[in-house]
Design a protein around this nucleic acid. Sequence first.
DNA 1: CGCGAATGATCCATAAATAGATCGCAATAG
DNA 2: CTATTGCGATCTATTTATGGATCATTCGCG
Lengths: 111, 111
Amino acid sequence: MAKPLTRATTRYAAEALSYLGRLIREARLARKETLADLAERAGISRGLLQRIEAGDPGCSIGAVFETAALVGIRLFDLDQKTLAANNEALAGKLVLIPRARPTKAKVNDDF
Amino acid sequence: MAKPLTRATTRYAAEALSYLGRLIREARLARKETLADLAERAGISRGLLQRIEAGDPGCSIGAVFETAALVGIRLFDLDQKTLAANNEALAGKLVLIPRARPTKAKVNDDF
DNA sequence: CGCGAATGATCCATAAATAGATCGCAATAG
DNA sequence: CTATTGCGATCTATTTATGGATCATTCGCG
């Protein structure tokens, strides 16, 4: 019983999505690799890779991150080692944060 | 006719995915917001938000980026304005890059 | 303690993503 | 110019993600 269709989309999220897709495309072309070749390396179809490069919000984040990694894009500007370290550190920190409690106070929404 | 099941996943991609999920969780807790509240703001179900925070590769990237944006996470370490500018610039650069040409599988240098 | 709420996990029906094939167009090489 | 090939788009069958409900557990607070 999923909802109709349309999903709210922030301008910022859409912009980031488009940007990531173009980064992947740029990196792929820099490597002089065809859509079909990269798609095969990533284990996805050519059509999906096209949608990823186009910034389609419906693509699975696993497929997107995978292709990004395969063309050498550093997510969060971090190398494998640092990323792993930060991830572990954050995991440890999270255990200490108490769960959220219901509040009437309105939350800060603007950035 | 989708493929069997398992999709190749780079260690780096998986690590980044897990990290992003935890970043979202940390940001949500810092705002003292419950899963249900953030899910509603993002227009997704509570279950999906849980999978996002758990770093599930199968989640749509649109849903993930949307929630990230809603808790104030700056993707690519860029604010809205800079991100838009970079995105535009990259788009312009891309039209100038020639399409990939098939490279000879291997240079035959043995005989 | 004990109550209430958040969280984590599971199940099911349905909407959506994906693979794979195919077409036309455009661009690049020869 | 012609030939070749990447690219973009569309269609269909199938797999998968998602929403919504529910249940048990854990946590936070008085």
